[in-house]
């Protein structure tokens, strides 16, 4: 029992000490993370927006999304960003969390200095849902029959 308690304590301590903060952690606790050099993971979403020699890349942890400001030379390494058709690249980046950027009108942001790792995303194949197709045919047929009935036999007096 003593060993189990010790193991649990060590694991808990390790997870608190070494776990990467999530994007939601930073957004929800800006005072704790402000100005800290961190390693963060997230999926690139939307568009890579080039601004001069830099670029904005919005990244999500699945719950919340934050803007990552990085040199365009780093942003060019991103091949896929998440959309309906694509799974975005999963990036591990190093840099500084800024709770209120004076450079960017007070926005909360993460200034990236290095991309540590990229797990590439890719095309998502959306299989057509045959059950829904059948339901569509049935309900569309019903609507069509009702339309014919309405036109032929039950035209309103107005």
């Amino acid at each position: 029992m003593k060993h189990f308690v010790l193991f649990t304590f060590i694991m808990l301590f390790a997870s608190i000490t070494f776990a990467l903060p999530t994007i939601s952690d930073m957004i929800n606790n800006p005072d704790i993370y402000n100005g800290k050099f961190l390693t963060v993971q997230g999926q690139a979403v939307g568009s890579v927006m080039k601004r001069g020699n830099y670029a904005w890349v919005n990244m999500t942890d699945g719950s919340q999304t934050l803007g990552f400001w990085m040199p365009y030379s780093l942003a060019k390494e991103i091949k896929y960003t998440a959309s309906y058709d694509f799974k975005g690249d999963l990036l591990t980046v190093e840099g500084t969390f800024v709770a209120m950027s004076l450079e960017h009108d007070g926005d909360m942001e993460f200034d990236v200095s290095k991309i540590v790792k990229i797990i590439p995303g890719g095309k998502i194949s959306h299989e057509i849902n045959s059950g829904r197709v059948i339901f569509l045919i049935v309900i569309a047929s019903l609507a069509f029959v009702l339309w014919i009935l309405k036109r032929k036999f039950f035209t309103s007096k107005s």
């Binding site: 569509l136 309900i139 569309a140 019903l142 609507a143 009702l146 339309w147 009935l149 309405k150 039950f154 309103s156």
Partner: peptide, 12 residues
């Protein structure tokens, strides 16, 4: 289709 089916049925 649901909108039309519902609408036409109500109209009738």
């Amino acid at each position: 289709a649901v909108s039309f089916a519902f609408g036409f049925a109500l109209e009738i």
